[in-house]
Amino acid sequence: MATYKEEAIVLRAYDLGEADRILSLITAGRGLRRAVAKGIKRTRSKFGGRLEPFTRLHAVLHEGRNLDTVVQAEIVRSHAPLRADFAKFLFGEAMLEMIEKSLHEDQNIPRLFDALCVTLDILEGDVEDPALLLAAFELKVCALIGYHPRLDRCLHCGRKIEGERVCMDLCGGGIACDSCSSSLESRLAVSPENLSLMRSLLNEDMATIAKRGESHRASRDALVTAFRFSESFLDRPLKTRQVVLHYLDSR
């Protein structure tokens, strides 16, 4: 079993026994990995606050049969501002979970790591509406893992869609016009305004989206549509979503 160096972002940490934790990491070169951080819960641990979720680090890991072991960790960017703002923390956690649930262990899609790095860096700064940033992130991750949503033409008849009420075909991975959508089993009604916003979120870069401001209703609708779309491809439920929507509804 070899020791290797990787740049990684901590997605999640679970308690293991009295003082250890299991980390879920997305690495730049080896995709999703799980590793044990021994003794991390002790106040005198050599890891200190280096292995908290959101932290981007240079890690030295020892490969194990089931789990790797963290040998060394140096912070590249702690993303500390995400811990100081509840909304940013909440939407950031949703992003981390999206990445964790999109990949199988050892599966590597390098652009996912890059996308998460860029998005967390942006989330740390001034963001007009973090819900829009999360909706865009969900759509872009879907595209990167091979489920690029088709939002310009009807999936079934190929007709170009412009300014009309349509349905999201949740199994097909795109929109369906009014006449084609009646027979669909799994669909979600999408207003022309929501469709237009979804297209922008998919096509614009994250820095531009961070400056975008929409009404509360519009950004919530876009987020719900993005959630429903990505849920149809991920075979596991995402726990952050309920908390995110509850938070948005309480504002």
Partner: peptide, 11 residues
Amino acid sequence: AISPIDGIGPE
């Protein structure tokens, strides 16, 4: 503690 990733919200 609030941990959205574990489905634990303020409620």
